[in-house]
Design a protein around this nucleic acid. Structure first.
Lengths: 195, 195
DNA sequence: AAGATAGGTCTACAGTCGTAGACATACCTG
DNA sequence: CAGGTATGTCTACGACTGTAGACCTATCTT
């Protein structure tokens, strides 16, 4: 790691934390299948076996990495009326290709191909993100509208960062924010007007 | 494959087609990393080497599978005014877990983790889907709004089929269609009203 | 019927993967 | 200072991956 890689002081908690951080980084960048245990171990400055010794298996390591990554509150909005604009602004800002590369949505999108990883993430969503977002919405079908908002967020992250589609990466942020604000607004109302 | 697996009559075109079909199925079900060349070959009733002999490499096979999968027009809408409702209805119907398991969005979502696969799919989107959807929208920023619609579609497919989130899989189809129709409607207008 | 060629298979290699058991060493306690 | 234990490493295995070259054989042509 550092230039003078003196063997880190023996501290189980700190080492475990270093491995978990490295795992989040690796899984977010390369996905569940693309990240190897040896790679995670090397980034944490330890051996591959120590990873399994602390976390049991790659699958359990992934589960804990997902849980940690999803636990961090991505967007906090207090006023329900201002939520669409705030959410849209945050989404546009954070999906900027030059933005910070560590976030739960990238981890999710790049690991969705593996069935076991998908299960783990579904449970984590129900445990963290879904519940948090549902609380911000009002109405009887808040749960499903919250997951629709989640779908939109994930979809934008997919196209803009993972696939890096030209029209979205090069779009004007202000106009993009307007569009997305309208989309989220449409999902904020309990039931669409059957005019 | 069949019970009496008599060695298929030697026909280069037919064999190539069988391999390509098997590849689309495998890549859609397991993603780029999850599907192996031997698995594809076995499903087509041939040897792994023949796959590479016809397609050069796994990567080129994937590129051709993506191109074929994306070329099939998923939703055809003629009337721009009715487009949101039609698109929403088709999306809700086709993302039903009991629906047909072969479609470009699943292929895309489950392969997005691999960087090379992501590049290939980005090009294929620009070549097929993006252009097709852009033609259905009007206004100066039709391109970026088309990709936002694509983002919504992909996001719903991700949550409803790949992750199989409970609130979306169990949601009432009619109400879901209403919500999504409103979302797409918001993206159909050239520029949101700065009221 | 005999040869030519397109169509397919066999064997194998070099690499990576996740993981298990035995072994070594740094640190704390007496 | 001596011992014990927590902490970390080494070696290795079996399975799987994509792919290359040599080889076989069914089919068509003459």
């Amino acid at each position: 790691m550092s230039v003078t890689d003196q063997p880190r002081r023996r501290d189980a908690a700190a080492t475990r934390e270093a491995i978990l951080r490295a795992a989040i980084e690796a899984f977010t960048r390369a996905g569940y299948d693309g990240a190897g245990v040896r790679e995670v171990a090397a980034a944490a400055g330890v051996t591959a076996m120590l990873v399994n010794r602390y976390f049991g298996s790659k699958e359990q390591l992934f589960a804990e990495a997902v849980d940690r990554s999803f636990a961090a509150p991505t967007v906090v909005g207090a006023d329900p009326a201002a939520l669409p604009a705030q959410l849209a602004a945050a989404l546009v800002a954070r999906t900027d290709p030059a933005s910070e590369p560590l976030n739960p949505y990238l981890l999710m999108l790049r690991s969705a191909g593996n069935p076991r990883a998908a299960e783990i993430m579904r449970e984590a969503i129900g445990r963290h993100v879904g519940r948090r977002l549902t609380g911000l919405l009002t109405g009887p079908d808040a749960g499903e509208r919250a997951e629709l908002v989640l779908s939109v967020i994930a979809g934008v992250w997919l196209m803009r960062d993972v696939l890096a589609t030209p029209a979205l990466t090069g779009a004007d942020p202000g106009r993009l924010k307007e569009h997305l604000s309208g989309v989220i607004q449409a999902l904020s109302r309990p039931s669409p007007d059957p005019a």
